[in-house]
């Protein structure tokens, strides 16, 4: 599992101005490692993450995932099967239970409901969500528990590329550390490629590779 970025540029345009959010970024992300991209607000970290996730196409340059160019690939399929995104504010469906939230990506791949929920249970257990929480709604869980459910959802879809946009931003330090530990375990033990965008130095310390983003440039 490998992500290659070759001279990626991205420009925001409207009729009043143009902003180059990402400037000629070239790098490589490999499976089995946890990467941290650090930078101040407005440096282009989230934009770069959305490009890697296939939510945007770069203005120029090429990005390949496992040798498949993003420009020609079915990006929705990539996100269903290979790439997951975790957000700072968890982004769970508020009216679905924990197990339903986790099973959702499998159901949109038309996997049988029972099988999907069994897989979801397994992944939830692996992130420390107990059985009594399975039928609860997200609002009944703590921040840390909700973020673990989000991680379990990523794992349930079978993704090997996990992109996390400030996953500890809404958590206290203890929960934040727990989440980072889970992500690290996924990278090292499950052979996932984990890319974390953060401006928290304590999170970056845990990463195998730290990159700094400044004014659209990645170092």
């Amino acid at each position: 599992m490998e992500i290659l970025l070759n001279n990626i540029c991205f420009e925001y345009r409207n009729k009043y101005r143009r902003v180059e959010a990402v400037k000629s970024v070239s790098c490589r992300f490999e499976a089995g490692k946890m990467y941290a991209i650090m930078g101040a607000s407005g440096s282009g970290k989230t934009t770069l993450l959305s490009i890697i996730a296939g939510l945007r196409l770069p203005s120029s340059g090429e990005i390949t995932v496992d040798g498949i160019p993003m420009s020609t690939a079915d990006r929705c399929k990539l996100r269903r099967e290979k790439i997951s995104v975790i957000y700072q504010d968890f982004n769970l469906f508020p009216l679905l239970t924990v197990i339903e939230n986790t099973a959702y990506p499998l159901l949109i791949r038309k996997i049988n409901k029972t099988e999907a929920e069994n897989t979801a249970k397994e992944k939830l257990a692996s992130v420390g969500i107990t059985d009594d929480m399975l039928v609860q709604l997200p609002r009944m869980l703590s921040g840390g528990e909700q973020q673990r459910v989000a991680i379990a959802r990523s794992l349930a879809s079978g993704s090997k590329i996990i992109l996390a946009d400030e996953p500890t931003g809404s958590l206290d330090s203890e929960n934040g550390k727990n989440i980072v530990d889970i992500l690290k375990r996924l990278a090292h033990k499950e052979d996932c490629c984990v890319i974390i965008v953060t401006h928290d130095p304590s999170v970056a310390e845990e990463a195998d590779v730290v990159m700094k983003m400044r004014d659209g440039n990645l170092k």
């Binding site: 939510l55 929705c76 996100r79 469906f93 959702y104 990506p105 949109i108 959802r153």
Partner: peptide, 16 residues
């Protein structure tokens, strides 16, 4: 919009 964006992130196509 947020819910639809989440569905998009999880891999639902625009047609879906």
């Amino acid at each position: 919009q947020r819910e639809l964006a989440l569905q998009n992130v999880l891999g639902c196509s625009k047609l879906n």
